[in-house]
Each structure stands twice: as structure tokens, then as C-alpha cells.
């Protein structure tokens, strides 16, 4: 198995799906000549030409709409947003058009479009470039929402997203592009809607996705070393549809749970996870479920303040000590 970056795994997924199906095309700012703002589309213009790797002006709302229209008449657009912060300009097309077209047409208009790009905070990019918006999109019926944590998942999930006949919001981690992992040479795809146990354990379930998987895994290492606690790390991978079965199975085993996410606390992804677990696993819980999220503030620029705002292994450790009643 080759060890490649998250960026190159996404690039492979795009290349393979564009080779496999000539209705797939990539559109967005700087995807072609510039090779991608984050180099995810490196080499694709050269291989597929300008009619399938389409550089756009800065016009998020309308190139998202062009994707919606192209999907309605039989193409499979992959619309790249330079970041999901900028995609807020296009939310009308994602929420009002893409998510509802099938329903309000009584089933006549499938919408096989992928909206993708990096989300979450990087380093000192300030309040307007640092948002994790999974919860915004996951709220909307008609959308699927995916946020992979590893190169293996990124490739397998993007391939499934492109083949899906529904609009998929695909949130990549800006800080994950350079991370490396093993990706098989042979063809594979990961079904949307399946969580994965990234590390097995018996004492507490750490629910996470995207960048917070690394946070949870670091916390799990320290829990084992410092407290002898065996944490089970469950990576949601897909936010909607949510794989409740895997969550419930884990919590039935561990009886304790901490949910970690990069987004904000209020109405966050974790709020939904907690809701599902209190109904489906109430009798199996030995402690209230706690959440670790970004601080409930716009992201500050200052390095120390920014660090304090982001979910950290230390915060996870503290939450685990509390659900294990090691600390009040």
C-alpha cells in the first residue's frame, strides 16, 4: 500500500472518477491553470482539458448554480469552493435549490452534484477563514454531509460522493491536506453513512470527525498512558446520514461518551449525536455525555487565543475524567 497525502488521495479520487465517467467535471476558483488553491486538482487540467476542469471567476453563488443546472440535465458536477467560508455566498443554491429540487419536483430531477472544499480553522487565518460549518448543512434534508479524516477515507468517500445521485456537501480539513496515510492501489469506495471505529476501547467512546479524529486519537493515547483508560474512537466520517448504529454499539460497550467537534457548541453536530444516544442508549449510559467544541466565539487571530479556542486533547482528557467520575 502506498503512503500518500490527504491532498493526493482526493486528487486520485477526482482523477479516477473523471476517467471512469465523462459526465464528471470539476469547476471552481483556481482549479485549472493554478492547479488548485490547495493543489487538490493538480494535473487534472492537463489530463482532462478546460471543458472538464473549469476555472471560474469569483462568483460562488452562480458557479454553484451552474453546477445545479448541469446536474439537472445529466452531468455530474464537482463544485470546488476555495473554502467553505466562501461557500456561504452560495448557500442559496445549496440549500434552496440543490437540496429541494428532487422533492419539489415530485421526484423528477435527481441532483448528482458534489460541493467540496476545505473547512475548519487552519493557523491564524482569523474569524472569516476559520469556520467549521458541518452543522449548517447537516440541518437540511436532501443534503448528504461528509467530512473525512484520513487519506484512505477521503479518497473512498469522495468517490462515493461523486457517484451518488444526491447533492453531497464534502468538507475537507484544511489542516489535513498534508497529512499522510496508507491508500491501496486497487479500486475501492466507502459507502456514505458509515462511521468507523478508528481505535477500539472499552471504557469511554470518543465521537469525532475530520480534524478532531487526530485530537481524539492523541487524547486516547494519553488516557491509556496516564490513566489506564481504554478509549474507543468513533469517526463519524459522514454527518448526514448519521450512522447511529455504530454509535449505539460503541456506547453500549463503554457506557460513557464524549463528543468532539471543531464547530461551535450551540446546535452543533455533537448536539445531534447526544440526542440520538440519549434515546437509543439511555439505559447504557453511566454518566451524562459531554462535548468538546470550539469556543463559542468568532475565531481570534492571536496565536494563543486561537489555540485556546480550538478543541484540544487536554479538553478531551478533562471531559473523559469527568464522565469517568475521576474529576468533578
Amino acid at each position: 500500500m502506498a503512503t500518500i497525502t490527504y491532498r493526493d488521495a482526493l486528487n486520485q479520487a477526482l482523477r479516477e472518477e473523471m476517467q471512469r465517467d465523462d459526465t464528471v467535471f470539476l469547476m471552481g476558483e483556481e482549479v485549472g491553470v493554478y492547479q488548485g488553491a490547495y493543489k487538490v486538482s493538480r494535473g487534472l487540467l492537463e489530463e482532462f482539458g478546460p471543458s472538464r476542469v473549469v476555472d471560474t471567476p469569483i462568483a460562488e453563488l452562480s458557479f454553484a448554480g451552474i453546477g445545479v443546472g448541469a446536474a439537472m440535465v445529466g452531468l455530474r458536477p464537482v463544485i470546488e469552493f476555495m473554502t467553505w467560508n466562501f461557500a456561504l455566498l452560495a448557500i442559496d443554491q445549496v440549500v434552496n435549490s440543490a437540496a429541494k429540487m428532487l422533492y419539489m419536483s415530485g421526484g423528477q430531477t435527481p441532483m448528482p452534484v458534489v460541493f467540496r472544499g476545505p473547512g475548519g480553522a487552519a493557523l491564524q487565518l482569523g474569524a472569516q477563514h476559520s469556520q467549521a460549518l458541518e452543522a449548517w448543512f447537516a440541518h437540511v434534508p436532501g443534503l448528504k454531509v461528509v467530512a473525512p479524516a484520513t487519506p484512505y477515507d477521503a479518497k473512498g468517500l469522495l468517490k462515493s460522493a461523486i457517484r451518488d445521485n444526491n447533492p453531497v456537501v464534502f468538507l475537507e480539513g484544511e489542516m489535513l491536506y498534508n497529512t499522510k496515510g496508507e491508500v491501496p492501489e486497487e479500486e475501492y469506495a466507502i459507502p456514505l453513512g458509515s462511521a468507523e471505529v478508528k481505535r477500539a476501547g472499552t471504557d469511554v467512546t470518543l465521537v469525532c470527525h475530520s480534524k478532531t479524529v487526530a485530537v481524539a486519537l492523541r487524547a486516547a493515547d494519553r488516557l491509556a498512558d496516564e490513566h489506564g483508560i481504554a478509549a474507543e474512537v468513533v469517526d463519524l466520517r459522514t454527518i448526514r446520514p448519521l450512522d447511529v448504529d455504530t454509535l449505539v454499539t460503541s456506547v453500549r460497550k463503554t457506557n460513557r461518551c464524549v463528543v468532539i467537534e471543531e464547530g461551535w457548541y450551540f446546535c452543533g453536530v455533537g448536539a445531534q449525536v447526544v440526542d440520538e444516544l440519549q434515546r437509543e442508549a439511555f439505559d447504557h449510559l453511566d454518566a451524562p455525555i459531554l462535548r468538546v467544541t470550539q469556543a463559542d466565539v468568532p475565531m481570534p487571530y492571536n496565536k494563543l487565543l486561537e489555540r485556546a479556542a480550538k478543541p484540544s486533547p487536554e479538553q478531551v482528557l478533562e471531559a473523559v475524567r469527568r464522565v469517568a467520575y475521576l474529576e468533578r
Partner: peptide, 28 residues
């Protein structure tokens, strides 16, 4: 909507279908 007759909506956010129509043009 009447997709078999290529009548593709019926859009109620003012002007939201202007880029959508251009998307059909792009596909053509």
C-alpha cells in the same frame, strides 16, 4: 416541473434559476 418535456421549474427565490439555466447551457 415537467422533466420529460424539459420544463425544469418553477423557482421561487428571485433569480436563483438564472445560474441554473446557464448550467443547462454549460451541459449542452
Amino acid at each position: 416541473f415537467d422533466a420529460p418535456r424539459h420544463f425544469l421549474g418553477g423557482h421561487a427565490i428571485v433569480g436563483s434559476h438564472i445560474p441554473i439555466a446557464a448550467g443547462a447551457g454549460f451541459a449542452i
